[in-house]
């Protein structure tokens, strides 16, 4: 290659880089200034001490993390660990419920004529486009003390007469599953749509029972969608704020509300920031774990930028 061709190529590459920065620069810089830097600041605050108003001050300290673990001037308290385990449990059950509901719904949609499918899918996603507060407090009306569902629960001796199913753990799990169901349905639908039905036919020719057909021919093929769905549901459900706040009451405090309290009602920024770090560590571990699992199982690569 001649020297001039080489430099021409370099100039062209430089131009391309300039174009890249002019077009994508503003958006990227915006996100960096207004999200990456702020979240870095939030995480950094966890290593400061708190003044009387809960604002971060020097010196650096690990006290916020001791608080997270439950140590305070009054000794050790298991409250935070309970809240953490409860959040994990609520998010886990909500994820299971939404997965269990998604399978029949997805295959129901696939059993309908092709022209109808987008509309059927839309009607599942539609409730999640209404405002978070509205669609959450709506469950308060369905599960509250004077609602029909609570009468039934009362007749079955599941709840005391003057209390409804909401607020409480049951309402929180229901609310989380309702809020995040579309996040399970959409990826599951995407992988079920591409299902190779010849495998099912082959199984049927070999007289496999319905259960075995589903378990060995259908389920493995939908696994990539299911795993993405689990991530999309479990992560936001774990750190959700609105649902436990509106449907949980005092008994079903979750990590999200605990964090938020440190920045609103009883300010203690460093403690709140330390809680956030622990929550993000949990979230990150879940994400990485599932990524590895997906790759091991030969999961589909998502469309990435």
């Amino acid at each position: 290659m001649s020297a001039t061709a080489q430099t021409e190529q370099e100039i062209e590459a430089g131009r391309q880089r300039l174009r890249l920065w002019v077009t994508s620069g503003p958006g990227l810089v915006w996100i960096m200034i207004f999200l990456l830097i702020p979240s870095a600041v939030l995480l950094g605050i966890a290593f400061f001490s708190a003044d009387d108003y809960g604002a971060p001050v020097l010196p650096f300290s690990v006290q916020p993390f001791q608080q997270v673990a439950g140590y305070s001037l009054l000794g050790w308290d298991p409250g935070n660990i309970t809240i953490f385990l409860r959040s994990l449990g609520q998010a886990g059950i909500a994820t299971l419920v939404s997965a269990a509901l998604s399978y029949p719904l997805v295959f129901f949609i696939l059993s309908r004529p092709e022209a109808l499918r987008p509309l059927l899918l839309l009607f599942i996603v539609l409730p999640s486009w209404t405002n978070q507060v509205v669609r959450t407090y709506a469950w308060l009306e369905l599960l509250g003390p004077n609602a029909p569902v609570s009468w039934v629960a009362h007749l079955l001796h599941a709840v005391p007469p003057d209390l409804g199913l909401a607020p409480g753990s049951f309402a929180v799990t229901t609310g989380l599953a309702y809020n995040y169901l579309p996040y399970m349905i959409v990826p599951l639908y995407a992988s079920a749509e591409k299902l190779d039905w010849t495998l099912v036919e082959a199984g049927r020719d070999l007289y496999a029972s319905g259960v075995r057909l589903f378990w060995h021919a259908v389920f493995p093929q939908t696994l990539p969608g299911l795993l993405s769905g689990i991530i999309f549901v479990a992560i936001p459900a774990f750190g959700d704020y609105v649902v436990p706040q509106l449907l949980g009451g005092d008994k079903a405090l979750m990590i999200g509300s605990l964090i938020a309290n440190q920045f609103t009602e009883t300010p203690d920024w460093p403690y709140g920031a330390a809680l956030t770090i622990i929550m993000l560590v949990f979230t990150g571990m879940g994400l990485v774990g599932f990524r590895i699992l997906t790759r091991k199982l030969g999961g589909a690569e998502e469309a990435t930028i």
Partner: peptide
């Protein structure tokens, strides 16, 4: 690009509050 999508909205909101 994926940070705002992945970040739990509570962490998002509180980061902005502090910033």
């Amino acid at each position: 690009i994926y940070t705002p999508i992945i970040m739990p909205s509570l962490v998002f909101g509180i980061s902005e509050l502090i910033f």
